[in-house]
Simulated scan of single mutants.
Amino acid sequence: MEPTRQSSDPAETARRARFGELPRSIRVEEMVEERPAGAPDPAKDGYSADEWLVRWCL
């Protein structure tokens, strides 16, 4: 690690204050948001393949 230098130049001091160190590491767990894709649809389970066969094939 390099020792910090004191500078009289205000632009360099501001630059070091802003960019002087790397940001903290972000873990993979912090990058992912988990939530359900959507609410269950009750009409989806209302279809019966057997009922369709009886109505259209017999």
Rank of each mutant, 00 (worst) to 15 (best):
E12T: 04
S7C: 13
V32Y: 05
P3V: 00
D9I: 10
Y47T: 07
A11C: 10
A39K: 12
Q6H: 14
A43Y: 12
D41A: 04
A11P: 03
A49G: 14
E2W: 05
P40N: 01
E34Y: 15
A17F: 05
E12G: 12
L22W: 12
D9F: 03
D45E: 15
S25E: 07
G38R: 05
R18H: 10
K44V: 06
G46N: 09
S48Y: 02
R18M: 10
R27N: 11
C57M: 15
E21H: 04
Y47N: 03
E29I: 05
Q6P: 04
W56L: 02
E30Y: 01
R18I: 07
F19G: 02
P40T: 01
G38F: 00
R5N: 10
P36M: 01
E21I: 06
P40V: 06
A43D: 13
C57D: 13
K44Y: 08
G20F: 02
K44P: 00
S48Q: 05
G38S: 08
E30T: 01
A17R: 08
R55P: 05
S8N: 12
R15C: 11
E12A: 09
V54R: 09
S48C: 09
C57P: 08
T4G: 10
I26D: 05
A17T: 07
D9M: 03
